[in-house]
Design a protein around this nucleic acid. Structure first.
Lengths: 108, 108
DNA sequence: CGTGTAAGGAATTCTGACACG
DNA sequence: CGTGTAAGGAATTCTGACACG
């Protein structure tokens, strides 16, 4: 993957909070609060300015949807951790399968 | 194409000049100067703050390379206009071919 | 021509706090 | 709990200009 690959572009933390506000329609107060609740993790510039990625913006829009449905920040966080773990487990299983196939085919 | 499509993300003007400086290694003075010479076209926030896209950042890095080779801004601009025109002409030809094929096959 | 810099002002962002409910 | 707001300060950005070469 090249550094300028679109996948990595999406993860680059380069957007400041005012622009995120425009992109998401959320208030700066809300955006900072969701960080306090560990739903979002902006980077910081040397002088402490928050920097967000496009992925962060997408994530914030998902949060906004959940909040509209009356879901509490605590719930949102718990759901995400669950999904994250499921994904980890799945990847582990994939790797395990790879290794087994490797030895089965006696390639080494 | 969805709005969040990676292609459009690359074109979104969301990065302020300080971050562009870090991304490109150019000085703010240089970045503004290349705009003055019509090599780059940032958007402006409501209050006049320049906003750049990832494409702009890439373009600035190409400019930086050209400048290192001693090419003048005027030259860079001229070369780009040439390439741009070639591209336009090519697209026109493609369209023309489409139309001809359409009538040839008597589909209408 | 291309770039550095000091100048003064305007807009942005930050934190901690008080408020409401 | 989630969000608004006023407060004071620090960091960012803007423009027009002078400098050098």
């Amino acid at each position: 993957m090249k550094p300028e690959d679109s996948a990595s572009i999406k993860e680059k933390k380069v957007i400041s909070i005012g622009t995120v506000r425009e992109l998401t329609g959320l208030s700066e107060r809300q955006i900072r609060y969701y960080e306090e609740r560990k739903l979002i993790f902006p980077a910081r510039s040397g002088s402490g300015i928050r920097k967000y990625s496009f992925s962060d913006v997408e994530r914030l829009m998902e949060i906004a949807n959940q909040m509209e449905e009356g879901v509490q920040t605590h719930e949102i966080r718990r759901e995400w951790k669950k999904k994250e773990k499921a994904n980890e487990d799945w990847k582990k299983q994939m790797l395990k399968g790879q290794i087994q196939a490797h030895f089965k085919n006696n390639k080494q």
